[in-house]
């Protein structure tokens, strides 16, 4: 099963991490929630899969394109 890096669509701050390593997630399910442009912006899973790694911590400042998590996809 291939691994898929999920990167941030946007520059912002990590507000909440809402999944854990090992969680099975569905496409569009939020992995983490960022704060950007005065909004809470979820970063959703681009595909169904299992969370293999989370590469950021709550409060981190991140840039567009930074890897947030790694999914093992079906």
């Amino acid at each position: 099963m291939p691994s898929l890096e999920v990167s941030s669509p946007i520059t912002g701050t990590v507000w909440k991490i809402v999944t854990q390593v090992g969680d099975r997630v569905e496409e569009d399910q939020p992995l983490v929630i960022l704060e950007s442009m005065k909004m809470e912006i979820p970063v959703p899973a681009p595909e169904d899969g299992v969370v293999e790694a989370i590469r950021i911590a709550e409060g981190d400042a991140i840039a567009e394109g930074d890897v947030i998590a790694v999914l093992r996809t079906d």
Partner: peptide, 10 residues
């Protein structure tokens, strides 16, 4: 759709 990128248009 605000659910994705806060609705900002790419």
């Amino acid at each position: 759709n605000p659910m994705f990128k806060g609705g900002s248009i790419d």
